[in-house]
């Protein structure tokens, strides 16, 4: 059954559709996704690392059976690597090749600044889709600087880009935009105002258990329950790096690969590195005593 964004009338098809793909979401997130599909406002998802923000966009693209275009933000990201760039090497060759021809200077220039020599970067790609609206994921927007954010703001309201040598490209299909942020920097109010907002928290124990079982249907029930309650216990502690859902899944996979059917002291000791990524945290948990943590968590 093909999922059609224009025809859905409630949030149930979204929950069901994404669950079929292995992504578990609650009513709140489903509502926000529904609004994203209907109102076509960009969705800003904030939350701690490793709780499935990026995955949401991935799954959304699969649900809509459309292309996912991803722009990974980093410090110093500039318009050239986000929007478009000319293929300079090819242009240089192009000039060489044209040397013998009797075209005028203007014609030559027009030739090497034609679409043939244009390298489309994610943002330009996202607005030049020809058959259906893609999902545009702008990942970790907080890592870019304010200038880029301002540029993005303009793009998100107009959905058009002007290339001086070529003209203006306007989106035929407005992309579904998902922005994620880890809050390393406060985003501008202007950008926030333009977006739907959703804060993702760590999942509850029952939801996390459902996620683990969805991802690894073969996992022993007991093991899954034990490791989820262990993780939940760790999250309640004040650690330097709180484990996210991705850590839970990594851990489940490692434990299964090592053939453990229940979680015991030895199993935890051998695999604690999957969950805790800081020497201080590992030390503090070991000091507390893994046996007592296990007892306290279950």
């Amino acid at each position: 059954m093909k999922f059609n964004a224009d025809q859905i009338t409630g949030i149930q098809p979204i929950i069901a559709g994404l669950e079929r793909l292995g992504y578990i979401l609650d009513q709140e997130l489903a509502t926000v996704v529904f609004l994203l599909l209907k109102l076509r406002k960009p969705l800003l998802v904030e939350g701690n690392a490793g709780i499935g923000k990026t995955e949401l966009a991935n799954m959304l693209a699969r649900l809509l059976d459309t292309q996912l275009i991803r722009l990974q933000c980093y410090e110093g990201l500039d318009v050239n690597s986000a929007v478009y760039e000319w293929n300079y090497q090819k242009q240089l060759l192009g000039i060489r090749i044209q040397e013998g021809s009797n075209r005028s200077e203007e014609e030559k220039e027009r030739h090497i600044f034609s679409e043939e020599y244009l390298l489309k970067r994610p943002l330009l790609q996202s607005i030049s889709a020809i058959d259906q609206a893609p999902v545009l994921l702008i990942d970790e927007i907080d890592r870019t600087d304010e200038e880029f954010e301002a540029f993005l703001l303009e793009l998100l309201s107009e959905f058009q880009i002007t290339i001086p040598e070529l003209g203006t490209v306007k989106a035929r299909y407005i992309p579904y935009v998902v922005l994620t942020s880890n809050r390393t920097r406060e985003l501008s109010d202007a950008l926030r105002r333009r977006c739907l907002y959703h804060w993702v928290d760590y999942p509850s124990a029952s939801k996390e258990l459902a996620i683990v079982q969805k991802r690894f249907p073969d996992i022993e029930k007991k093991l899954a329950a034990q490791l989820v309650s262990f993780i939940q216990y760790l999250r309640a502690k004040k650690l330097q790096k709180t484990p996210g859902v991705s850590e839970t899944l990594d851990w489940a996979l490692s434990l299964m690969a090592l053939g453990y059917r229940t979680l015991d002291v030895e199993a935890v000791e051998r695999t604690l590195g999957c969950v805790l990524k800081s020497a201080d945290d590992i030390r503090s948990v070991k000091e507390e005593g893994i046996a007592s943590v296990l007892a306290g968590a279950s």
């Binding site: 949030i11 009513q27 509502t31 926000v32 109010d189 977006c195 739907l196 804060w199």
Partner: peptide, 13 residues
């Protein structure tokens, strides 16, 4: 709940 979530995502930034 859906009513609540909708307004929340719209009015919170």
């Amino acid at each position: 709940p859906v009513f609540y979530y909708s307004l929340k995502s719209l009015f919170c930034t």
